[in-house]
Design a protein around this nucleic acid. Structure first.
Length: 705
RNA sequence: AGCGGGGUGGGGUAGUUAGGAAAUCCCGACGGGCUCAUAACCCGUAGAUCGAUGGUUCAAAUCCAUUCCCCGCUACCA
């Protein structure tokens, strides 16, 4: 009997719009695999849903003066809309605030409790007498015991990064009422994870098909010992705990959300008119889970422990597919810092097919990968539009224009036989890779076949054959179209819309049914039209220099009182003086710096470093010998250009923005210069057309910052 | 500085888990072909001592050690 397959994607948290990093790290892979399994005749369902409980939702609701329900309603709808805007089609996209979900979570909880996998423990938690409730750690503020920051939070101090317990804070306050919380005992239920330690170890060790990163991460986690974990909290927004005395408590999100996979599948089954359907999948089938690497622990350890404890014949995950991160031009995608695009924004630049193609070709399967507009344009135009799109168009347009019907004529020459064999073996290999979730490799195999198809068409020269041997011409075109069939179906899971368009332009039906049926039905083609299937992208960015670099002269230098690697400098920029903090203490004596000319990044956001304000930053080259300040003989206050580009910006920049310019030392023919990137060009920094100097010299390719 | 991930032709990458003859593919450069097609496609050429050093081995991009550099997160980075 054919395997049943359930495909799950980590439930997205219902408080934001997914960005490209989320899509690439999880959802698009699920969608690709789902489309693949369906196209190749497997019985699969693709399920996810929004994760709607938890403290971040409460916080957001308070900030926006809304109820948590209003927040999650909005984002649930938003997420559905965003996924469908890029053809990510779930069979069911549910939500953890459903009644059924709560019922199922409580059922699993009772079962685990009865079997002795859950124990009650006493904890000490901050309780606000004014608000009359226990406070989440982050709702407690106070003075950090390490650095003295008076606005540290109960979970972490933003100033020194220390991870706190709320009890550690001096003069703790409730961040809502401002009153001093009491530390009271409170009871909570704990999942006794340790009971599963040996089982999990053995189970994970036997999972040979898992990616190495997932397997080794999980094993090393188990190696360090599994501790019991609280599964309830003193909060209001969550699934109620069916336990006397727990009326004011709720399940902690991670425990409850993991069960969403099954509760969503149950809801899907009911909706499909067969409430027991989900059992087919979870008891007799395979289950695939797609997620980002930050979620591996929950899926490879928590979920299996819960399912194992619960039993009821539910099978443990078949594959846990943890992905690395997709970065945007080298930086982590971040809404709050405005790095990268969310899906809505990127769709104003590219169409969904191009976006899906590009993301598929750089999926962060085994290591972090970079999303850049430039590379996207290159790949989409060169591969999707030029090679594949143009191939479809050139074959179809030829047939239409010359009014020739591609048909077999019973003859197969040596060349044809070789091509057919090649396409078949390429396809077999593709199937193996797809089944093993190696999507990037599968896609590069596809590209190989596209090139091969173009090559065959070139060698066949149908434009000549049509005059000399119409029958052979028709046969060659027929084979060309069969190659197009393979290319189109292989690409279909990745780029569903565009491939459907192409398919329908030369077949009677749509891409419906299984691969075998589709291929078998193609003894004859009915060419209806030929259009350019993929438009080329035109994304151009005017290169500009947003770095305001000025020559400065050090007036005073001294030690930073509160840090052992920092210096404090007073610097003249000509018309005014500024204060700088510099990490040079290990390499420079303050006295030796006074009077030196330096290069200052003038439009850097001011920042407080260990209590001292830094109103810019000086440039220094860093190599294995240490730090070397960048200097010049020109007047203080002079501007530094990158190539011919003068400063052209108004905004203050973040320190991370410097990385885009990739300032570094370049040594050519014995001469050192400082260079930076403007657009694609690496240009040298100069003041009044004179190059910059490096104090003491530095090694080639040293980073300047 | 701590943790994690990497250094492979001009750029981007595959190959490293199980060491083995000529190191993969895409872009770019150069030369050629074709004219059906989206100035597209196809063929060919050049270009890499696989970061460095040392070791194991008949054999190392691949294993071991040391080291340098880069990136991400964190930070006494600014």
């Amino acid at each position: 009997m054919e395997d049943k397959i359930i495909i799950n994607c980590a439930l997205p948290y219902a408080n934001s719009t997914p960005h490209i990093g989320n899509i690439a790290g999880c959802y698009i892979e699920g969608d690709i695999y789902n489309r693949f399994t369906k196209l190749f005749g497997k019985n699969s369902v693709f399920i996810s849903g929004s994760d709607e409980y938890g403290t971040p939702t409460t916080i957001r609701a308070e900030k926006e003066n809304k109820t948590p329900k209003e927040i999650v309603d909005y984002y649930h709808a938003e997420q559905k809309r965003v996924f469908s805007s890029i053809d990510i089609e779930f069979d069911y996209f549910g939500r953890t605030t459903s009644e059924n979900h709560a019922k199922f979570v409580q059922e699993v909880y009772r079962d685990l409790k009865n079997k002795g996998y859950i124990g009650e423990r006493l904890m000490i938690s901050p309780f606000c007498p004014t608000c009359k409730k226990f406070l989440p750690d982050r709702y407690v503020t106070g003075t950090c015991p390490r650095c003295g920051n008076p606005t540290a939070r109960g979970d972490q101090c933003e100033e020194c990064g220390r991870n706190n317990d709320p009890q550690d804070l001096l003069e703790p306050k409730c961040s809502i009422s401002g009153d001093t919380p009491e530390f009271l005992e409170t009871r909570h239920m704990f999942l006794l994870l340790g009971k599963f330690q040996d089982f999990l170890k053995e189970w994970i060790e036997s999972q040979n098909s898992w990616r190495p990163n997932v397997r080794s991460f999980s094993l090393s986690f188990i190696e360090s010992g599994l501790k019991e974990r609280a599964i309830t909290r003193d909060i209001e927004w969550g699934v109620p705990v069916p336990e006397p005395g727990y009326e004011g408590k709720r399940f902690y999100v991670w425990f409850e959300a993991l069960l969403g996979y099954i509760s969503n599948a149950q809801e899907y089954s009911s909706q499909a008119g067969n409430p027991e359907l989900w059992q087919d999948f979870y008891k007799n089938g395979k289950s695939y889970y797609f997620m980002g690497k930050d979620n591996i622990f929950f899926h490879s350890i928590m979920l299996p422990a819960i399912l194992k404890g619960y039993g009821h014949e539910i099978k443990l995950p078949t594959r846990i597919n943890g992905n690395e991160y997709l970065r945007f031009a080298g930086k982590k995608f971040s809404k709050s810092k405005g790095i990268g695009y969310n899906v809505n924004e990127i769709l104003q630049i590219v169409d969904k097919d191009s976006l899906r193609y590009y993301i598929s070709s750089i999926l962060p399967e085994s290591s972090d990968s970079d999303f850049t507009l430039q590379e996207m344009v290159g790949k989409v135009n060169g591969e999707l539009a030029d090679k594949y799109g143009n191939y479809a168009n050139r074959v179809l347009a030829f047939c239409l224009k010359k009014d020739i019907i591609p048909e077999e004529d019973g003859i197969i020459d040596e060349e044809d036989a070789r091509v057919i064999k090649m396409s078949e073996s390429n396809f077999e290999e593709y199937l193996k890779l797809m089944e093993n979730l190696e999507f990037r490799k599968a896609l590069s195999l596809w590209l190989e076949l596209v090139s091969y198809s173009n090559s065959y068409f070139n060698r066949s020269q149908p434009w000549k054959l049509i005059a000399t041997d119409r029958s052979a011409c028709s046969r060659k075109l027929h084979i060309s179209l069969r190659l197009l069939d393979y290319c189109t179906l292989m690409l279909h899971p990745f780029v569903p819309s565009g491939t459907s368009r192409i398919w329908e332009s030369y077949h009677e039906g749509a891409i419906m049914g299984t691969f075998d049926e589709l291929i078998a039905g193609n003894e004859k083609f009915t060419i209806k039209s030929s259009e350019i299937p993929f438009k080329k992208l035109e994304v151009q960015e005017e290169p500009k220099n947003g770095l305001n670099l000025k020559v400065g002269k050090i007036l005073e230098a001294g030690y930073h009182p509160g840090a052992d690697s920092l210096l404090l400098l007073k610097v003249s920029l000509g018309e005014r003086n500024i204060k700088l903090v510099a990490g040079l203490r290990k390499y420079y004596d303050p006295d030796a710096l006074v009077g030196r000319k330096i290069i200052v990044v003038e439009n850097l956001k001011w920042a407080k470093i260990r209590g001292e304000e830094s109103q810019g930053m000086l440039l220094a080259a860093q190599d294995s010998m240490g730090a070397h300040i960048i200097t010049t003989n020109e007047e203080e206050g002079s501007s530094v250009k990158i190539g011919e580009y003068e400063y052209d910006g108004e905004q203050k920049i973040e320190i991370d923005d410097l990385k885009a310019y990739d300032l570094r030392v370049d040594i050519k023919d014995g001469h050192s210069e400082i260079t930076g990137l403007i657009g694609r060009n690496r240009l040298s920094l100069n003041v009044n057309n004179k190059g910059l100097l490096i104090d003491g010299g530095a090694q080639d390719k040293s980073t300047v910052r």
